[in-house]
């Protein structure tokens, strides 16, 4: 999106509604001066774009659009990705904070479904109880879906979480007020409140690696290639090939979050 015309337009709008609003206010103090006008104006803050780099030099976010492919049939549940993610991103070591985690599904002959993820999979998975009743069983890696229509960004009251031009959902740790609304709004359980920073934490697709041309840490260490990273649109990347030759699905598609974590060989019981 071109920055400057947008800004100019918004500036014009601002002075306009501003003066009208104040005049009305004084003239008709008791009257019902519209609540909507100041609200609409107030929301679109525009500070003239001066030094808006937004990323490292030489990296143009508008040229990219990232997503992740996950081949469920390749995941062996070793949880190297979970460990690597915690190491790379300073995710708290304790068991209940994960940017990514591995779930084990055990679907029984009577359609009962048992799911577990002990310590996100890091500690391994205990033997399956009553193995004789198992119909099928498999591992599913989970992470932030980096939705194109992210409910977490929608609900953030202050603009502390946002989607970048290259399609990654990030948290501004210096601005987050810790209201936890985004945690409630995420259908995937991908967010948590960092126990020391008291702000929302989540997967960043290792954004600090992307801008240097590296893949996310979880992708780097996946020994079976169950995680495939790359461009969602147009450009030829492993993800593009993955999406060409697999039937892909997204999680909770009915919520219209437009996720960019694409699953191949996904079982219908996974949610």
């Amino acid at each position: 999106m071109p920055e400057s015309p947008d800004t100019i337009e918004r500036d014009a709008e601002r002075t306009d509604s501003d003066s009208v609003d104040r005049r009305e206010f004084l003239r008709d103090l008791l009257g019902a001066c519209s609540a909507a006008a100041p609200v609409l104006w107030w929301g679109t803050v525009s500070v003239p774009a001066a030094a808006a780099q937004g990323a490292t030099a030489g990296y143009d976010p508008t040229e990219h659009r990232y997503g992740m492919g996950i081949d469920v049939r390749k995941c062996i549940g070793c949880a190297r990705c979970v460990v690597a993610c915690k190491t790379e991103n300073d995710v708290p070591e304790e068991p209940h904070f994960f940017n990514t985690w591995i779930e084990r599904y055990v679907i029984r002959r009577d359609h009962e479904v048992d799911v577990d993820s002990p310590n996100g999979g890091i500690d391994g998975f205990p033997p399956i109880a009553e193995p004789a009743t198992v119909r099928r069983t498999f591992f599913v890696p989970k992470l932030c879906n980096h939705c194109d229509n992210p409910p977490c960004v929608q609900v953030c009251p202050v603009g502390a979480t946002f989607i970048t031009k290259d399609g990654v959902v990030l948290v501004d740790e210096g601005y987050c007020i810790g209201c936890r609304y985004c945690v409630q709004a995420c259908p995937y359980g991908a967010r948590y409140i960092h126990p020391e920073k008291h702000v929302a934490g989540k997967c960043t697709f290792c954004y600090h690696r992307l801008v240097d041309g590296l893949v996310p840490a979880c992708v780097e260490v996946c020994p079976t290639g169950a995680r495939i990273f790359g461009e969602v649109e147009e450009r030829a990347t492993p993800l593009a090939r993955f999406m060409q030759f697999n039937d892909v699905q997204v999680l909770k598609g009915h919520l219209n979050t437009k996720p960019k974590a694409y699953y191949a060989n996904l079982d219908g019981e996974v949610r």
Partner: peptide, 23 residues
Amino acid sequence: TFGDLGHYRAAAIDTIVAHPKEY
């Protein structure tokens, strides 16, 4: 830098990008 790129602090991206790599 609030509002430069969208309804957020553009400088936040710089902070995130500056995160050190382990791998």
